[in-house]
């Protein structure tokens, strides 16, 4: 039987080494392909949509290479995991870089944390939100399998997602505001945190993704 395949979408925005290495680490029987080729992405069993850096640069490459269409097409038939700026790119619009239109797969905005940003005690919080914070699982989901409630994951971002439809929110994190840090609809699962940098918990999530058949 042929190995199952997972395509990591390469649209020229930085290091995909980490996410590819982490997927290989958890998926012994999985072939990991890092590619920008639409045919290869659409032929894979699963797709990962990563992203780092500024949203303007990401969106301009996404538009130039037609990545939005590939993501939309892939998500019709197979599980897709969007990470960090990949998640932000799925929203309607981002406040970063004076306002950038995104793919509008999920209705909602990507907002700046604000300055100053304070916690419940009035202490100032640093931006970027950088480090290990707790992920509150709002609902049960196959991707949370074997991961403890309020487990810590690694975050690094200065803008946060707020989805219009709360029913899509599967995970939240508090950092001065309540951030929607995981969204799910149909075949798409999106995380603001970096599972590939979140040690054991992150590897569990990636392993769960490689076993997930999508939809539910």
């Amino acid at each position: 039987m042929a190995k199952s395949t997972v395509a990591v979408i390469d649209y020229g925005m930085g290091n995909l080494h980490s996410v590819a290495s982490a997927l290989k680490h958890v998926g012994d029987d999985v072939e990991v392909i890092v590619t920008g080729d639409a045919d290869k992405i659409l032929a894979a069993d699963r797709v990962v949509f990563p992203g780092v850096g500024a949203i303007r640069d990401c969106m301009s490459e996404i538009k130039r290479l037609g990545v939005g269409e590939v993501v939309a097409e892939a998500a019709k038939t197979k599980p897709l995991l969007a990470i960090c700026v990949g998640m932000q790119a799925l929203m309607t619009r981002s406040e970063e870089n004076n306002g950038i239109d995104c793919l509008d797969v999920f209705a909602g905005d990507v907002k700046f944390f604000g300055n100053p940003l304070n916690d419940v005690n009035g202490d100032q919080l640093k931006v970027p939100h950088m480090g290990w914070n707790q992920l509150h699982q709002v609902v049960e989901h196959p991707l949370w399998s074997d991961i403890e409630q309020d487990e810590r994951f690694y975050f690094v971002h200065s803008y946060y997602v707020h989805a219009e439809d709360e029913s899509l929110v599967v995970g939240t994190t508090d950092y001065g505001v309540k951030i929607h840090t995981a969204l799910h609809r149909d075949n798409i699962f999106a995380t603001q945190f970096h599972p590939e940098k979140s040690s054991t918990a992150g590897l569990k999530l990636l392993g769960n993704f490689l076993r997930w058949d999508g939809q539910s």
Binding site: G14, N15, H17, S18, S21, Y154, K197, L203
Partner: peptide, 28 residues
């Protein structure tokens, strides 16, 4: 390839190419 927590690389970073080389090698 083996450590799945963030990695910072410093020392001798002088050009945009140096940064790209380290990020491509797997530095965060």
């Amino acid at each position: 390839e083996e450590v799945f927590i963030p990695l910072t690389v410093g020392g001798g970073i002088r050009t945009v190419d140096d940064i790209r080389t380290m990020l491509n090698a797997g530095a965060d």
